[in-house]
């Protein structure tokens, strides 16, 4: 059986505007002229949606567009495209024509393929994701850095927590050196974790918002922290520096 290349057919008012064979691993749809499929209509976002090849499948992802992306009248965030699907963006319809294999209706085998782990094979993806983030200004995904601001007991002003693990204490190896008669070598540590910043006592008397912490606690913006006689506040701010 001959393998037919998957393709997209852009339509407006039931008229075919243009056909696009899916030659690349990743294509984008939007108003911006950098898109593979450019639709010059105000209902369409700059970078509206993306279609990526994943194995023998194609996956449609809405790039957090203002007016949404629909497949057969259902709003979707991300969906595998099936032969004959209508992707609706604004007033335009994009018809998805699957590959030979899928057009034959062998949906079952395609489905079991998805059970396997696979890689979204696209080099442009990251670039696009970063563009998407810039254009949508999602606050919680932009890079934030933790800052501690000293209130009492140490004249250190504000310090950005640039390390994954910051040690606070008397030792020379501490990222933030605190002094005091009974300050331990390492009094506490602040680590940046998948869930956010966490402070852990390592032998210093640690209080967060007045409560004694015996082990560790997740830090929230504007928590007040006391280690012995040193008092400071934690918060997060946007950073222009790239955190890995």
């Amino acid at each position: 059986m001959e393998e037919i290349m998957a393709r997209l057919v852009l339509m407006f008012n039931k008229q075919v505007v243009k056909e696009y064979p899916l030659m690349k691993d990743s294509i984008t749809i939007g108003r911006n002229e950098e898109n593979t499929i450019q639709i010059n209509n105000l209902a369409v976002s700059g970078f509206h949606a993306r279609i990526d090849a994943a194995g023998s499948d194609y996956i449609l992802t809405d790039l957090q567009s203002t007016n949404g992306t629909f497949v057969n009248d259902k709003r979707v965030v991300s969906q595998k495209l099936s032969h004959g699907d209508n992707v609706i963006i604004g007033k335009h319809v994009i018809l998805f024509i699957g590959t030979g294999k899928e057009a034959e209706g062998k949906q079952a085998s395609v489905k079991s393929d998805l059970d396997k782990t696979m890689m979204l094979d696209t080099a442009k993806q990251k670039e696009l994701l970063s563009k998407q983030k810039e254009s949508t200004q999602v606050a919680d995904t932009s890079t934030k850095i933790g800052v501690i601001s000293f209130i009492e007991g140490a004249e250190l002003g504000e310090i950005e927590l640039k390390k994954k693990l910051t040690k606070l204490g008397k030792a020379d190896t501490s990222e933030i050196r605190l002094t005091g008669l009974f300050m331990p070598a390492t009094a506490a540590t602040i680590s940046r974790r998948p869930s956010g910043y966490v402070i852990t006592t390592m032998g210093g008397k640690l209080k967060v918002n007045g409560e004694v912490v015996k082990e560790s606690i997740a830090l929230k913006d504007f928590d007040t922290i006391e280690i012995g006689k040193v008092k400071f506040q934690f918060y997060q701010r946007e950073t222009t520096e790239k955190l890995s």
Partner: peptide, 25 residues
């Protein structure tokens, strides 16, 4: 989700890879 096994990063698919690394005590 049917897409739960589709990865956005792995070793081997591009020239450079950015891992997530965390350090704790």
């Amino acid at each position: 989700s049917p897409l739960r096994h589709v990865l956005t990063r792995n070793l081997g698919s591009s020239e450079d890879v950015v891992p997530d690394i965390f350090e704790i005590e």
